[in-house]
Write a protein that binds this DNA or RNA. Structure first.
Length: 293
DNA sequence: CTTGGACCTGA
DNA sequence: CAGGTCCAA
């Protein structure tokens, strides 16, 4: 699909404590890392229902943005979207302050991964499928699967710069092209993806889940095939920006055992210890334990 | 309510 | 061989 009534532009703005590369490559299941091209990271995002090609790169404390989009979309809209995706309004220093008091371990973790933030979903359905695909899977494998789904089932958009981008298919398209899904390397998760997609298409609106309180949303997501406690918390954290979510995988289990000597009811432990910062604490604990020798 | 085997893919 | 969820026991 070609894009008409296009305007191109660029701007830059100051960002707070932020590390774009670290954030994008920290394994968050909202989406795969953006495509790296000509020193920028780029993605196709819908803003005001219009396709928008966004390119970003970081130079110290400012973010440089280039865009190609419909004339109806303003640079302010784009900036707002970028701020949302990288959670730039979140007060990281306050989070650091809260957990580094009298805690040398957390101080070192926070120092080492300074600027790590949430990488939030621009498409909640893509986040749900990414999270299901990530279960019992490696980061490189689930991201490759999602990229394949975009290319094989997604719609292609060609921008004026002749840049070609694919957008993650909607539930209806996935159900109509189940056969193609089989060649995206999702393995036995295939049936989870199809069944969950059916439910999202017929019975459960993502917007409804978004309106629920955290606990109700968690329980509702658990009803979806392929969604257990870990995946539900990934969806809530990376897809719905619920800071109290604390996704527990094998690495977080190790980190909590390593740092606090706790080895059961890890999710409850994390949520009560870190409260509204549970999601952010999980981000940093994950980096810590994965890089620990 | 708890446990442990089966499930796919690609390093 | 790693890695969450499901299902049967």
């Amino acid at each position: 699909m070609e894009i008409n009534k296009i305007k191109c532009g660029k701007f830059s703005f100051n960002v707070p404590n932020f590390d774009l590369k670290l954030t994008m490559f920290s394994g968050q299941t909202s989406q795969p890392p953006w495509k790296h091209k000509n020193d920028y990271y780029q993605e196709l995002i819908f803003i005001e229902d219009k396709p928008c090609l966004i390119k970003v790169r970081q130079k110290n404390n400012h973010l440089e943005v280039k865009y190609e989009t419909d004339t109806k979309v303003s640079p302010q809209d784009i900036k707002k979207t970028i701020k949302y995706i990288f959670d730039l309004e979140f007060n990281l220093d306050k989070f650091y302050f809260n957990f580094t008091q009298n805690d040398s371990i957390f101080s070192r973790i926070v120092e080492k991964y300074n600027g790590l933030r949430l990488f939030l979903a621009h498409n909640k359905y893509e986040c749900i499928i990414s999270s299901i695909t990530s279960a019992n899977n490696s980061i490189s494998k689930w991201t490759r699967s999602i990229l394949r789904i975009k290319e094989k089932l997604g719609r292609k958009y060609v921008f004026p710069s002749s840049e070609e981008m694919y957008y993650f298919p909607d539930p209806e398209t996935v159900l109509e092209n189940k056969d193609k899904l089989k060649y995206c390397g999702v393995g036995y998760r295939y049936k989870y993806i199809v069944e969950t997609t059916k439910i999202l298409y017929e019975n459960l609106s993502i917007d409804e889940v978004n309106k629920m309180e955290y606990d109700e949303a968690f329980e509702t997501l658990l009803e979806l095939p392929g969604v257990g406690p870990k995946v539900a918390d990934c969806i809530l954290l990376y897809g719905f920006r619920r800071y109290e979510a604390f996704p527990v995988d094998i690495w977080i289990t190790r980190a909590i055992k390593d740092l606090f000597g706790v080895s059961k009811d890890i999710r409850e432990f994390g949520q009560s210890k870190f409260g509204k910062y549970a999601g952010y604490a999980q981000l940093y604990l994950y980096q810590y334990i994965r890089h620990k020798k």
